[in-house]
Design a binder for these strands. Structure first.
Lengths: 329, 329
DNA sequence: CTGTTAGCGCCTTCAT
DNA sequence: ATGAAGGCGCTAACAG
């Protein structure tokens, strides 16, 4: 069933059918009514593919993250999807899982499908999308990169100021009277390095010596947190407060410190990052930095919508993370 | 840039270009080489839309859930996406958020875009997709419905046996020696009703009286759990073990019971459902039923892949949930 | 206000 | 082995 069939049954031409389908003017009300009835009768849906052939767009966008199962990515994706589905777009999600090859595969797919925009969530993408080759591939598609920056005409950024986030987490602990602060780093992304800078900055400003020795590396997750807690306890480092780059790792550590007999926050204060749901599950509940995953999604969507509508999007949008004070500090 | 441009530059016809593009036989190796070089030179990507026009497929599928932010939905979606992206498909995700209207909107969109399949995750969909109208709309698209059943030629089910899941949770508590069991219900979906049946069944088999009075309703989430804990404590019900339909609500209750001075599991045993990440965060860690979100995704993907490949998929696939014993029982 | 026509980019017969 | 031509379903001039 296509517009030819509809036109035949309505005893008119495909142009007229197309006009009523697209609510265009210059259609005799009677014919319009007749066509509409037939449309309804068959519950007729025009082929988006054929339309796309003409209009060069299928009204779809691509959103890429490392892994949807990570809750703050899911939160950002959720908002983007809701914003775009309102406008009749559909969003395809991609899990690249730390692989540059996968990233490029998805990018190629987006080009072939002629999506109207690409949203890249996570600083890892600015590491993957570096060569002229890759940039050239997607030069006709607007790309929003969340928490990353690429200097190209079709690239737009929405930044989360992670440096200031960790900086204020650190300052907050100092202001609370904690003096021997440690920082636990569990990722190797651009964003993780920026967070670390925030910590160093706060310490430098207070002339704290041996900053490098206050930085501990572990792996991401509850287990990584437990391992680093053991490491810290068994080292001879002095500490009374620890800043973490990720909530989940912080929670693992929190559990292990308790198990080893430490009181939180009396013996050691702990602050996390992300404000994920788990922060209100653990005990004591975790003080954390809210980096506003939903707001990030909204702002990315806004920028992309401006572009698809031909408007000039706001440049240099930056989200300031907030501190969420709970029981662990 | 299209195949005409390529053909012109290679001094051949579009048919030949199309042949090399699609690895078809009957093309002179020399010409083939020449064309391939030009293809590479421009990093040429054929338009998936134009291809779709001919082949009637864009190689994409639609996956719908209530909300991607719910972690077990994200887990299922993740696996489906990974499985299909391997085959060059892309998956568009939809958040219907308890709204039948949204559900139908997304279904229409899937029809217009001529997706190759639809995966519906969650029992709520069997309530929304009921009328002949809706069924007729999507009669040409294979639909996999996770945890629901619809008797139509193009519908396929992958079931999670939630009844047996709750049944074994209940049996497990009895076997551990708990005698006064309560069930907390926090949703109003088909799946929630089936879970409840599992609880009732276990009690009936032991000739436990007043089953209805052992069923308590609340709302979903940590707050709903806290509220129901207060309600239970302040009622004059006897209880030493509680079965929950959802982990998150169970955890809210767990926290509140502790706050009100109850020891877990000595004073009250608590068992949840879903095996979400939060179950290993709370203290004591929550015993729960693992309903295998990833496996669900894999099985849905397998069925849909069989269909798209013209094979006959296995019918009546059912996942048996497992009990995960932790500290709360 | 209406209908005819020419594409959109590709695949697929069908001749050659 | 190759190329010309038709068609997928729709939109957008253009002519009436």
């Amino acid at each position: 069933m296509n517009i030819y069939d509809i036109a035949a049954e309505a005893n008119t031409s495909i142009s007229t059918v197309s006009r009523v389908l697209n609510q265009k003017p210059n259609v005799n009300p009677e014919i319009k009514k007749r066509v509409e009835e037939i449309l309804k009768k068959y519950d007729y849906k025009p082929s988006a593919i054929a339309r796309g052939m003409v209009s060069k767009t299928m009204k779809s966008i691509t959103v890429m993250t490392v892994d949807v199962r990570v809750s703050h990515y899911a939160r950002t994706i959720y908002v983007i999807e809701q914003e775009f589905s309102k406008q009749g777009y559909n969003v395809n999600v991609c899990n690249i899982g730390n692989s540059k090859e996968e990233c490029i595969k998805y990018l190629n797919n987006a080009v072939e499908k002629q999506v109207d925009g690409i949203v890249l969530i996570g600083s890892i993408f600015s590491e993957f999308i570096n060569s002229k080759d890759i940039l050239h591939k997607i030069k006709d598609i607007p790309v929003i990169i969340a928490n990353g920056h690429i200097e190209e005409a079709n690239f737009y950024s929405v930044m989360v100021d992670d440096k200031s986030g960790i900086r204020s987490a650190t300052d907050y602990l100092f202001e609370k009277g904690y003096q021997e602060l440690l920082y636990v780093c569990d990722m190797d992304t651009q964003s993780a390095r920026i967070k670390l800078q925030g910590f160093k900055e706060a310490l430098k400003l207070r002339d704290i010596p041996d900053i490098e020795e206050r930085i501990i590396k572990t792996y991401y997750g509850v287990e990584g947190g437990k391992a680093v807690a053991d490491f810290i306890i068994d080292s001879n480092k002095k500490f009374d407060g620890i800043v973490f780059g990720e909530d989940i790792t912080a929670i693992g550590a929190l559990k292990q410190f308790k198990k080893r007999g430490y009181n939180i926050p009396e013996d050691v204060a702990i602050i996390g990052y992300n404000n994920c749901q788990e922060t209100i599950i653990c005990e004591p509940e975790l003080t954390t930095i809210d980096n506003k995953a939903e707001l990030l999604g909204k702002l990315c969507a806004d920028v992309l919508k401006d572009i698809t509508e031909g408007k000039i999007p706001q440049k240099g949008i930056t989200i300031k993370p907030d501190i969420i004070e709970r029981e662990s500090t």
